[in-house]
Amino acid sequence: MILRRSGVRIGLVWGVLSAATVLGVVFGLGPHMPPGQGTPQAVDQSTTNTLMTALAAPVLILIPCIFIYCVVNFRQRGAQIQDGPPVRGHGPLQLGWVAITTVLVLFLAGYGTYTLLVTSTGAGGGQGPNPVAVPGGDPLQVQVIGQQWDFTYRYPGYGGVETTTLELPRGQMVELHVTSIDVIHSFWAYQLGVKADAVPGTDNIVYVEPTKLGSFQVRCAELCGIWHGNMTSVGYVVSPSAFRSWIEQQQREWAPVTKQLPPYAPAYYPEPVVRGG
């Protein structure tokens, strides 16, 4: 039957194209998939990105394949209009489609939940003041303060010193407390795989464990006014000993300022903006 042959032909083309694409995605793109391999959180994100791309590719190939095949083969021209076969559906096919998509989706949701809660303590996303995925041990506490248009960092374990760059020691679980003193920002440390909204009055906690030395890009990911795009800086992951000397130097350098700062708190309540009526 002609239709069966059509199905086989599409299946073949689709199978070959999908297999090639999936292999390309997993082995070609996968190792370079953003946001990289700098932290377990970033690794989980990039694995998820790879997985999603690999699963989306066959769907993205299948449907245009069918469209194109139909347009080429099931087309009529000319003035005389012919009607097609009055087929209204195909129960098993419809059920099968529903079953396959449901299984795929449940798998993705299950995998996402697993990564989120089990493997990477929150996957680098802000969990708010009461995190559900909490690492063991004694993480290094760093407060990230957003303000128009810069991020500053406070180290409560080191006398509450506030620095203008973020440096983190390698191999140490870090507990970032993201907050803001004016409008909503979003702290985005790209290579660390961290993103957490900085909301005034809120202590938004993220866990991240840098495992690779090097620099990372900090940006703001929530519109916060005209210089939103300029809220960028570079942070560094350094060895524990380098971190130690850096933070001591910072404490000395900023000592006069630290005295003036308000005492460390999980969140600061700015004077609310009362509009002029």
Binding site: I63, I66, V71, R75, Q76, I81, Q82, G89, Q94, T101
Partner: peptide, 20 residues
């Protein structure tokens, strides 16, 4: 899933059509 319904509706209609 329900969005996928609509895609298979479209593909089923295109299949073996007399497309203009």
């Amino acid at each position: 899933v329900p969005t996928g319904f609509l895609f298979i509706n479209a593909m089923g209609t295109l299949w073996n059509a007399r497309m203009r």
